[in-house]
Each structure stands twice: as structure tokens, then as C-alpha cells.
């Protein structure tokens, strides 16, 4: 029995590792390409072993990608902070207070989250063209709020619901004011949820392409949009593309390691409690 189960464990492990390798192979290949010299890049048959080079990095930096990186970071952080400031009280009130037509409003928010970004980008483009928010930092941050705010509110609401109302009632009876209850009781207990959800929001903003592509431009150009710069007259600079791809993976990796328990909860909109 003991032996049989350990064989089963071994088989399952082997299967899982093979699957993981299949899943991760493209990612690893891209990471390897970062250090691949241009002369073996397009070799047929494929060259698996080569002397690593940092030349790809040099070109990327030369092209001013550091600026794009900073823009990406700043956009992600700024729009996420906006979302947290506005979304936290909203999520809390959705979870706690009886509001008229709450359900319908909520469904609408959900639907706006569900709507294809293309649906949103058209009105945004026209409105922004009128009010002069095209190609501005603020404009793009606001646009990110359309999908991130509803996501944040929805997921954080599920965290709020996990808090027993009685904790807040006990504090009210002790004589704390509503604001104090929020600061002393609700906020500390929600902190994990807020961190996890807002980091996911940051990733969504970081990964976003269409809004940035349409509503951004020359002065506001986050990383994903900057990639076309690498498509030169001499052809696509694949090594450099790989560098940008890998750089854009770094925060993703950090999130995966730090927040794995919360990712499922976030991406299933709170349906699974990790």
C-alpha cells in the first residue's frame, strides 16, 4: 500500500513536471533569447548553445526604453493609488450598507468590467480628443480606472464580507466614531485584501496594451506600446523584443511568488477564497 502510493506520487509528479515544462518552455526560451547574439538568432537549424551577450540590453537602453519603463511603473502606481482611494470606501459600502438598486448597479459595474476594452476605447478616444486628455498621463490613468476600479470594488467587497459585522458593532458600542472604527478595525483587517487586490490592479495596468496604444502616444508611452520601436527598417530586433518582454515579466514574477494565494481569488472575482 505504502509503496503503491509512493509510485503514484512519483508518476503524478513526473506528469506535473513535464506539463510545467511544456507550459514554461516558451517563457524560458524568451529569457534565453535575451542573451543570444544576433548572428545565431535566426540560425537554421536552431542553435541551442552560444556565448551569452549583453548587446541586446545595450540597444534597448540606447533606444530610451528606460523612460518607457518609468512611464509604465508610474502609470501603474498612480492609477492603482487612485483606485484604492476611491474603491476602498466604495467596496466597503457595497458590502455593508443597503443601497437602493444595489444589485442592478453592481451588475452594471460587472458588465462594464466584462465589456471588451475596444468598446470603451472608442468613446474615450473621442471624449479625450475634445477635452485634450489624449496622450496625457492623467488621461491614461483615468482610463485604466474603468476596468480596474470595478474589478477592485468587486474583489474587495468579497474581502469585506469576510469581516464579521459584529466587530464593527462592538467598536461602535465602545464609543468609537464611524471613521475611527474604519481606521482602527476595518482597515487593519482589510489590509491584506487591499494589498493583494491593488497589486493585481497594478499588474493589469502594467500589462494593458489597447488603451495605452490608442490614448497614449509620444509623451506617455508605457512599455508594451514601445515595442513597435524595435520593428526597424532592417527587420524586427527580436533579441531586444525578448529583453523588453522579460523586463515586463519581472513584476509578474514578483506577484506570482508573493501573492499566489490571492491570485485565484482575484481572477475569479472573489468566487474562490484562496
Amino acid at each position: 500500500m505504502e509503496q503503491k502510493s509512493s509510485i503514484g506520487l512519483g508518476l503524478r509528479t513526473a506528469a506535473a513536471v513535464i506539463c510545467a515544462l511544456i507550459v514554461l518552455f516558451p517563457v524560458l526560451w524568451m529569457v534565453a533569447m535575451v542573451f543570444k547574439p544576433a548572428d545565431v538568432m535566426f540560425a537554421r537549424p536552431t542553435v541551442f548553445f552560444y556565448t551569452p551577450t549583453l548587446a541586446n540590453f545595450a540597444y534597448v537602453i540606447e533606444q530610451g526604453f528606460v523612460n518607457n519603463l518609468i512611464t509604465s511603473l508610474a502609470l501603474g502606481i498612480f492609477s492603482t493609488i487612485l483606485v484604492v482611494i476611491i474603491g476602498t470606501p466604495a467596496a466597503y459600502s457595497f458590502a455593508r450598507f443597503e443601497l437602493k438598486a444595489k444589485e442592478d448597479l453592481f451588475l452594471f459595474i460587472l458588465a462594464s468590467r466584462m465589456a471588451p476594452p475596444v468598446c470603451l476605447v472608442i468613446p474615450f478616444y473621442l471624449i479625450y480628443a475634445k477635452v485634450g486628455l489624449l496622450d496625457t498621463f492623467v488621461g491614461l490613468s483615468l482610463a485604466y480606472m474603468t476596468f480596474n476600479l470595478s474589478f477592485y470594488v468587486w474583489v474587495l467587497r468579497s474581502f469585506c464580507r469576510d469581516l464579521p459585522v459584529e466587530l464593527e458593532e462592538a467598536a461602535i458600542l465602545e464609543g468609537w466614531s464611524k471613521a475611527q472604527v474604519f481606521r482602527r478595525i476595518v482597515f487593519p483587517l482589510l489590509r491584506n485584501g487591499i494589498v493583494a487586490t491593488s497589486v493585481l490592479c497594478f499588474i493589469f495596468a502594467w500589462n494593458e496594451f489597447l488603451f495605452a496604444f490608442m490614448l497614449g502616444g509620444d509623451s506617455v508611452q508605457p512599455l508594451p506600446v514601445a515595442i513597435p520601436k524595435l520593428i526597424t527598417a532592417q527587420g524586427v530586433r527580436w533579441g531586444e523584443v525578448a529583453v523588453v518582454g522579460v523586463v515586463s515579466l519581472i513584476p509578474v514574477l514578483a506577484v506570482v511568488v508573493l501573492l499566489q494565494r490571492h491570485i485565484v481569488r482575484g481572477l475569479t472575482m472573489g468566487a474562490v477564497k484562496g
Partner: peptide, 9 residues
Amino acid sequence: IPTMMAPIV
């Protein structure tokens, strides 16, 4: 990792 990657990447 694949889930969290930017679709563009």
C-alpha cells in the same frame, strides 16, 4: 506565470 503575463507579451 502565463496567466499573469501581458497578453501582448
